[in-house]
Amino acid sequence: MMLQSLISEFEHEVANTRKLLNAVPEKDLGYRPSPVSWTMGELAQHIATIYYWYVGVFTHEVYDVSTDRPERGAPSDIKATLDFFEQNVERARAILKSATEDSLQGLWTMKVGERTVVGPLPRGVVARGFLFNHVYHHRGEMIVYLRASGNKVPGLYGPTYEEAVGRK
């Protein structure tokens, strides 16, 4: 029951993430709202990378992100980021479809070298609380980046403010 719910949410939200990433203009990939913030291109790439982590969550008990370096392309290449996103979505979809309700109970830990950054937690909690919510958090940031740089924001859960005001 939980697995089917995760898969349904995954499919619904992948479409929203795709819509948002497709709204990122190449001309603004270097935009950063503050000196300590990622560029828009780096943020887009990070969102695409989160989908890469699904395989690590469901195939490892302990996943060390410092030893896993996916080939992502440059953050200044939005086409490479979009391709990376699509490849990762396909891998994530396949791993979710091969999961079982029992596998959602298995403990999982994320490390960066010797430092534990997530877990140990049941995989189902990690999927919902780390993978899904992580994407949602960064999508919210991307919406702010797009608006702050004068770009159009796509409606993810209905019309945007700009679309709603424009209808009056």
Rank of each mutant, 00 (worst) to 15 (best):
M1H: 09
L3D: 06
S5Y: 07
S5R: 09
E11L: 02
H12M: 09
A15K: 12
N16P: 00
T17S: 05
L21F: 11
A23P: 03
A23K: 03
G30Y: 07
R32C: 04
S34D: 03
S34M: 03
T39G: 00
M40T: 15
M40C: 06
A44V: 14
Q45R: 14
Y51W: 09
W53R: 15
V55Y: 03
V55K: 15
T59R: 01
H60T: 14
V62I: 15
V62D: 06
Y63Q: 11
V65H: 10
P70I: 15
P70N: 13
G73H: 05
G73R: 03
A74E: 13
D77G: 03
K79L: 08
T81S: 08
D83V: 14
F84G: 09
E86A: 15
E86Q: 10
Q87H: 12
E90Q: 12
E90I: 10
A94W: 00
L96Y: 00
K97L: 12
K97H: 13
S98N: 06
S98Y: 00
S98T: 07
S98K: 10
A99P: 07
T100R: 05
D102P: 02
D102H: 09
L107R: 11
T109L: 12
T109V: 13
M110E: 08
K111F: 12
V117F: 10
V117S: 04
G119A: 08
G119D: 06
G124S: 09
G124H: 07
V125R: 13
V125P: 02
R128D: 15
G129C: 06
H134G: 06
G140F: 08
E141P: 04
E141K: 10
R147T: 11
K152E: 10
G155L: 01
L156C: 01
Y157L: 00
G158Q: 00
Y161C: 03
E162I: 08
A164F: 09
G166P: 02
